[in-house]
């Protein structure tokens, strides 16, 4: 029943997302070629991008939480978002006229962040988390420096990207959807080991998990997924933090269930947030990161209150 509700919600939100925007269009009865174009060449690819990016962020969040043994972990906790942002702004500085410079810079920056964090992966969850938090602070400082040096005309583009921007993703939709599927399959393959990791690294190892191998695979997988999502849509907060918790409340703790639920639920939240972002002040758009935070913060606080 819960799965039926989740799938129904996805279909409903995709239809709603098709319909809303600067102008209302009935997805089943477009009146002319222009509306057909808006529906299927503009809104539909953007909705699929939102769905895939949201799902990838929620998957990465679920993985980072169990990898670090910390329910407050999220995809950006180890500084990947900071390094990606610094990379994006660097790309913008070097090639201000290029359409893809920010995405390329973000991708390179994200991987620099990932490789740096991987150097600390052998230290165990707590020290890796500490190293990640310190690295995140470092990348924030680098980002602030770059923003200070960025010419004024680039600032708006940089800030819009940093708050999340689905309006012009440079990564093709099929690539994102394929990544969503591959990431989910990888997660499901690892799900039994991830369940054991919920008992802590030592208990998991005593139950047969090769903990070093799992840790490095999970870190690489979660970081790669985060890098892809950030490259596609900038830094979008709260999806990766809130959705795994919400899905645990609805579906329990086992990863064979919460990973697919998170992949779908994350997509659902971002589809909703993006639909709202391009409708509320249409024809202008709000950065989608603002909407996920506005939806995410109350939900997260509700969860905290419920837990206590």
């Amino acid at each position: 029943m819960r799965w039926f509700i989740l799938f129904s919600a996805v279909i409903s939100c995709l239809l709603l997302g098709l319909a809303v925007g600067e102008q209302w269009i009935n997805p089943f009865a477009a009146s002319d070629a222009l509306e057909e174009t808006i529906l299927w060449e503009l809104r539909f690819p953007r909705l699929l991008t939102a769905f895939a990016v949201g799902g990838l962020l929620a998957l990465a969040g679920a993985w980072f939480q169990v990898l670090l043994g910390n329910p407050l972990a999220e995809p950006y906790v180890l500084g990947v978002a900071g390094s990606a942002s610094a990379g994006a702004v660097t790309g913008l500085m070097l090639m201000p006229e290029s359409a893809w410079a920010m995405s390329a810079g973000a991708f390179v920056g994200a991987w620099i962040g990932i490789v740096t964090v991987m150097l600390f992966s052998h230290l165990g969850a707590n020290r890796m988390l500490l190293a990640g938090v310190v690295l995140a602070a470092f990348w924030s400082a680098v980002l602030a420096l770059l923003l200070a040096l960025l010419p004024e005309q680039g600032l708006f583009r940089a800030f819009a990207w940093m708050m999340g921007d689905l309006s012009h993703s440079d990564i093709p939709v099929p690539v994102l959807l394929l990544a969503w599927v591959i990431a989910l399959i990888c997660g499901l393959i690892l799900s039994r080991s991830l369940d054991k990791l919920l008992l802590g690294e030592r208990h998991a190892e005593a139950l047969g998990v090769d903990i070093k191998q799992l840790r490095s695979r999970l870190l690489l997988l979660a970081s790669a997924v985060t890098a892809l999502a950030v490259t596609a849509a900038g830094t979008i907060g709260f999806v990766g933090l809130v959705i795994p918790h919400l899905m645990r409340l609805l579906f329990g703790s086992l990863h064979s269930t919460i990973l697919p639920a998170s992949a779908i639920g994350g997509g659902l939240l971002l589809v909703l947030a993006d639909s709202a972002a391009r409708t509320i002040i249409a024809p202008a758009e709000l950065p989608v990161g603002i909407l996920t935070a506005i939806i995410g913060v109350p939900v997260f606080l509700f969860l905290l209150l419920r837990r206590s």
Partner: peptide, 11 residues
């Protein structure tokens, strides 16, 4: 060994 952590809601 030690009691395992309980943060993630395992039954």
């Amino acid at each position: 060994g030690d009691l395992p952590p309980t943060e993630f809601g395992l039954t």
